[in-house]
């Protein structure tokens, strides 16, 4: 996963490691009352799923589900669903199919605490994706995007391959992607000269585009993977601002590794939420999937 360039960061890290040392700690964490967490990512053309739970502590992650909450969901300020019921895991579901461009508002009452939030579902842009393979193992996908709505904050691209083993088919996440666009977000990429011709950057797990960078431009770029055989699935997530900030923050919070990253500018990363009265996220996304043989 690490690019060749990272080797040089290793040299510096080694110097730092030689003179520095690390050890495990028993910490008295700052105390705080437990809070209610409301998590719901509204995915276009899917049903509504809301999860409620109590927070845990940093070391004890026994998150207790909340099953007795009263949840109301409004669509464009009209009451859509009232008192949705929960399963044993704090999952509240409804069969209503989410549509893009709609405004959703949620109110959840539990333990005399009212949690509120609202979101709009981002409109899916027009994707035109073609496969242009260079050879048997270097697969390239030409992506053309048009009509990015103002309610879109970012686009995330993932690639999966489908493999069969013992008669079972399952998808494998291609965690090393290459992209030749100058407009992609560089936060999870590094220079790499092992990719296909014309691709200089390797991306970890996905390629993110800030919508403001490509909204009013001709957006045509290529994604590439090194791949042997099987079906390939390109997935694009169209994210509103809530999910975009939530996900990017979560990624940077979890992706810090002292073995790779230098400690000089380390700052703990916070993950923003948009739940009034509690923690969590109420966000809207749109998922598009494209399959290639």
């Amino acid at each position: 996963m690490l690019s060749v360039l990272y080797k040089y960061f290793f040299y510096i890290t080694i110097i730092v490691t030689i003179i520095s040392c690390e050890r495990e700690l028993n910490i008295d964490f700052p105390q705080e009352k437990k809070q209610i967490v409301l998590n719901s990512i509204l995915t276009c053309d899917s049903t509504i799923k809301v999860n409620l739970e109590w927070t845990g502590t940093p070391l004890n992650k026994n998150f207790i589900p909340i099953t007795d909450a009263s949840i109301n969901i409004y669509i464009n300020d009209e009451l859509l669903l009232e008192n949705i019921s929960s399963d044993n895991y704090g999952n509240y579901t409804s069969q209503y199919i989410i549509k893009e461009g709609e405004e959703y508002r949620i109110e959840a009452l539990s333990n005399q605490t009212l949690l509120k939030s609202s979101v709009s579902i981002p409109n899916c842009p027009l994707f035109n994706i073609k496969q242009n393979s260079i050879n048997d193992y270097e697969k390239i996908f030409n992506i053309n995007i048009d009509s990015i709505n103002d309610n879109v904050s970012a686009l995330y691209f993932y690639i999966f391959s489908e493999v069969s083993e013992n008669g079972m088919t399952h998808q494998i996440h291609e965690t090393a992607l290459y992209c030749n666009s100058a407009l992609s977000d560089p936060f999870n990429r590094s220079l790499d000269d092992w990719g296909p011709e014309g691709f200089h950057y390797e991306y970890d797990y996905f390629v993110r585009f800030d919508a403001s960078n490509i909204r009013n431009r001709k957006s045509n770029f290529d994604l590439a993977i090194i791949h042997n055989e099987g079906k390939i699935i390109v997935t694009a997530i169209t994210a509103g601002s809530e999910y975009d900030m939530y996900f990017k923050s979560y990624y940077t919070q979890q992706n810090y590794d002292i073995e790779v990253n230098l400690p000089f500018s380390y700052t703990p990363k916070t993950v923003p939420g948009n739940i009034d009265g509690g923690l969590g996220i109420f966000a809207g996304i749109n998922i598009s999937t494209f399959e290639f043989e």
Binding site: I41, T57, F63
Partner: peptide
């Protein structure tokens, strides 16, 4: 330092 922890839907 973190004070609480909760599951992610990211």
């Amino acid at each position: 330092l973190p004070t609480l922890s909760y599951s992610s839907k990211a």
